[in-house]
Every structure is written in C-alpha cells, then in structure tokens.
Design a protein around this nucleic acid. Structure first.
Length: 488
RNA sequence: GCCGCGUUCGUCUAGGGGUUUAGGACGCCGCCCUUUCACGGCGGUAACACGGGUUCAAAUCCCGUACGCGGUACCA
C-alpha cells in the first residue's frame, strides 16, 4: 500500500490539508504501507516559496513523518512536479499519438469570445468540449500541415484531452460508492498549459501511476474531476488507484472554511496558527480525525497509535462537517492533563515570563503541578500571575460577594498568626485558620474567601493552603495586610 | 443553469427494516464532590429536512421536492 499527500505550495498548510494528510498517514501506518509527500508546484503564478517548508514543519509537528519526499528522497524522486517534466511530456505525446488528446492554438481571447458568444441563461458556463471544439482552432479542425507549420513557428498552444462522446464514466469511490458521469458533461481539459507545464490532472495521474500509489485520499472538491482522471488512466494504459473523497470542512456559519470566513470568526485555519496558539498537536490530530470519521465505538480520546489501530476508510462520513473550536479546546484540555508537570512548565515558560519576568524552574514546576487540572492550554498558567507577583487589583464581583464588614479585621489577625508561626506548611496554615475562626466565633468561609481574595486577587484557583505555601510566608503576610488596608 | 455529492440533537456523530421511550461526545443547564474555580461523577435540554411510495413494520429501502456543499479555469 502506497499513499501520498500532494499539496500545492500556494500558502501555509491549512487544517483541511492536515486532515487529508492525516487520513493518508493513518491508512499507510495501519497497513505497514508507505506515506509519500509530493509537492505539486505546477502553478508558477501561485507559488509561495515558504509554503513547502511550512508543509514539512507542520507534518512533523503533527507527528506525521513521511517516508518518501522532499529532503528524504526515495525510489521515485524527485518529489517536485516542477522537476518531473519529462514524464508529463512523454505522457502527453502518447495521448496525442493515440488521438486521445489534441493540440489547440486558441488564445485566451478566442476562448473568452467563444464563451461570450455561447453564454445564455440556461448555459452560463459554456465549455470547450465536444460541442464546441469543432468551432475552435486546433488539430482537429486544422490540416496536419497547418498544425505542423504553427508548431514549427513556435506558436503558443495547449494540449487538450479529447473527451469521447456518449460514454458513461464510473468511479468506485471508497466512501461514496459508485458515481457515474456522462462524458458529455466533461470538458476537453487542458493537460499541458502554454508555458509547457502540465495541469494538475495530467501530472497527478502520471505521478500517481509512476509512484505506484495504490490509494488516493483527497477532498471532495476533486470528485467532479475524477472522470477526466479515469479517462487519462485508460488512455495511458494505467490501472487507476482506489479513491476516497473526503467530506469538506465547513465554517461554523456555513459555507466552506476559507481563510477569509475563518478570520472573520476569529478561527485559525493554518496549522502554524494552531501551533502558535499553544495547541497540543495530539489534540488537533484527534479533533481532525473525528471531523468526518469515527471509530464506531464510544471512545473519543485517541493517541496517534490508537488512531492508526482504529482507522478504516470505510468509516469515513459523507457529508460536510462544521468546524467547532469548543470541541477542539476540550480535546486540548484532555491532552494537556496527560502531560507531565515538566512538559507543562516548559510549554508555559515563555508566556509566564512574558507577563511576570524570569522565574525559577522549581517554582514554575510547582505551579504547573498545582494547576494542571485547571488548564485548557499549558500557557494558561500565565493567567495565574499571583503565584509570582502581588495582586494589583481584586476581582470586583468577588469582593462584592466575599468581602464583608469584618473581613479586614479577620484577615489582619490571620496575617499576624502566620507571621508569628514557626512553621508555614499546608497543615500549619490550615490549622491556624481553623483555630482563628473558632476563637473568633465565625464560619470558616468568612475567613478563607477573603484570604483567597487578598492573596490572589481572584475567587478561583487551586487548594487555598497549597496555594499559600507556594506564594510563601512573607508574600502572604504582606498581601493580607495590604488587602485589608485597600479593601477596608 | 447544468453535473456531482450530501441531509439524525446548536455542533461532531452512532444506528442502515422490528433490539430505539433514537445512543455517545462537545456546548448549555442542574445536582453531587468541595473553602473557591476547575477536574471528576450523576442527571437534564435537544435531532431522524419535507412529501409520496414499498412493507405487517421505515430514521433505516425507492422516488420526488426543498435546502446545503462542491465542480463547471492555461488554480490546485
């Protein structure tokens, strides 16, 4: 089994692309097959130089190493379509020789004029097909000599697929079953552009055959191109690979998840943005795997190895799926909690130091250990600045709810008790608080809530006494006293 | 317009003739745990697009309609 991920380097890798790569990767790993990366850089106008490195980095980050491809080589190198021109040229010549393709000299203006002439309400997109090819300038309408003369003169031309008449073209799609197309609906696709580069359709068919690809898994946007590919496989004498067309990822507001629509909703689309936002790669992978696929069990959280084990193409869904960032975030929390305190600390360090300045490894580790259950992202640690700095303000709603008439007095008393004590441990801080409330004849809550407010500035957090110990005796006393002054 | 694909809770989905008072997950709400917040546990909210057929029986099969998505490029 050999599968490929074949992106076009026109921009940063999109999560839809990552999901396509993932399904290919899972299939290959499950069956001990080969996962190939091929760069489809035949569109010189849309080429983006940084894109290739981004694709490679993103795949590695996500834990999907490829077996053959750029920088890695392999038996079918090179893995750039721009460097495989001879193969496409040869194929085009073979098609021309078998009269399954023809040369066309029409200029873009000619085609534009033809379309304008033929456009009606019923036919808003006239095609260059078996209905119109006879009225155009090509090797089907020109004499052999005339064609040769133009070719010799170096006249710009393209090579087009000669689509047959009256055929029904079938595809056995792994996720959709039998899909049939009438050849009358298929246009005479350009196979070789006037700059000599192949179009996707030709290059893709030639490469998939030459690289011995057995399974093509790609987005549904390709389904309507399949009849062209089937024809090419047939005319070239190639065996078509098995195909699976994936449901598209849609925006939460409907429509496809484009860069623009996502930006508007504040949803990242590029893998790099997820990486920068602090997502765990396993979480993104798990989430993406479940966007259009499910294992048929009730397990939701999967490691990459478990996904490989569980994956089957047959369980792929058929309808478009909406992107849901809440679920992704939930997955992220699941994976963050699986991390060691050490890993959480190293991921959070940059964000924490950015808000509170340099801190010791020991301290950061202790905070990570204490707060881990409360995190959605590792860098959420940076939100709890009170572990490192005195609070500069107190949560307004919290003060209103928890800070009573007697709070300042009680907090001061507690500060004095802590200051006088020899010990400063979870046990000692709790014991002195319990003693104090008893001697003052007040409820436990009347002290602990104001103490939390005074020492952290918030009403939420980990266990109070563990938190106090981490903050440290001097800082606790100082904070209690200054809060008592500030809040009265 | 034409062609192709699709349509089960708000979202991701299970279920593919009787097992279903349609199951799970996210979200939301409530309760429990608890000094708080989270985690966790328990419970709740909420769906078979519509209309015809086939059948003893349809979410499940067939047809139609509606709606959504994709394609209709010398882009991939």
């Amino acid at each position: 089994m050999r599968v490929r991920f074949a992106p076009s380097p026109t921009g940063l890798l999109h999560i839809g692309g990552l999901r396509t790569a993932l399904y290919n990767f899972l299939l290959a790993r499950k069956h001990g097959g080969t996962f190939i990366l091929r760069i489809e850089d035949t569109d010189r106008a849309r080429y983006v130089a940084e894109a290739e490195q981004d694709i490679i980095d993103s795949l590695r980050w996500a834990g999907m190493d490829f077996d053959e491809g750029p920088g890695k080589g392999g038996p079918h190198a090179p893995y750039y379509q721009s460097e495989r021109g001879d193969l496409y040229k040869e194929a085009a010549e073979q098609l021309l020789a078998g009269v399954h393709a023809y040369v066309a000299f029409d200029t873009p203006e000619d085609i534009e004029a033809m379309r304008k002439r033929l456009t009606t309400k019923e036919n808003p997109n006239p095609k260059y097909d078996l209905g119109t090819r006879a009225s155009m300038t090509n090797s089907l309408t020109l004499s052999e000599g005339e064609v040769q003369t133009r070719l010799d003169a170096g006249e710009p031309h393209v090579v087009r697929l000669l689509v047959p008449e009256g055929e029904t073209i079938h595809v056995q799609d792994l996720v959709r079953g039998d899909v049939a197309f009438d050849s009358a609906e298929v246009d005479d696709q350009i196979l070789v552009k006037s700059d000599g580069m192949p179009t996707y359709h030709l290059a893709n068919v030639v490469d998939d055959h030459e690289m011995e690809i057995t399974h093509v898994i790609r987005g549904e946007e390709w389904l309507s191109s399949v009849p062209k590919h089937i024809l090419l496989y047939k005319y070239l004498g190639f065996e078509p690979p098995k195909m699976a067309h994936l449901p598209l990822i849609m925006s939460p507001t409907g429509g496809k998840l484009s860069k623009r629509s996502a930006d508007k909703l504040g949803i990242p689309v590029n893998v790099q943005q997820y990486r920068d936002a602090g997502y765990e790669p396993e979480a993104l992978v798990n989430f993406l795997a479940f966007l259009g696929w499910n294992p048929g069990t009730e397990q939701e959280v999967f490691s990459m190895d478990e996904l490989i084990e569980a994956y089957t193409v047959e369980r792929t869904g058929q309808s478009g799926v909406q992107f849901n960032i809440d679920k992704l975030n939930w997955y992220n929390g699941q994976f963050v909690r699986k991390l060691s305190a050490d890993e959480i600390a190293s991921r959070a360090r940059e964000a924490v130091e950015k808000t509170v300045g340099p801190i010791s490894e020991k301290q950061l580790l202790a905070v990570a250990e204490l707060m881990r259950e409360r995190l959605t992202f590792a860098h959420d640690l940076a939100d709890s600045t009170y572990f490192f700095k005195d609070p500069v303000s107190y949560d307004e709603a919290g003060v209103k709810k928890r800070w009573k008439e007697d709070s300042a007095e009680l907090v001061r008393l507690y500060a004095h008790v802590l200051e006088a004590g020899d010990e400063f441990t979870e046990a000692s801080t709790e014991a002195s608080m319990r003693d104090l409330v008893e001697s003052q004849g007040v409820g436990f809550g009347q002290l602990i809530h104001p103490v939390r407010l005074a020492t952290t500035g918030t009403t939420a957090g980990a266990g109070m006494f563990e938190t106090l110990v981490l903050i440290g005796k001097d800082a606790c006393v100082r904070r209690l006293l200054s809060a008592a002054d500030a809040l009265g």
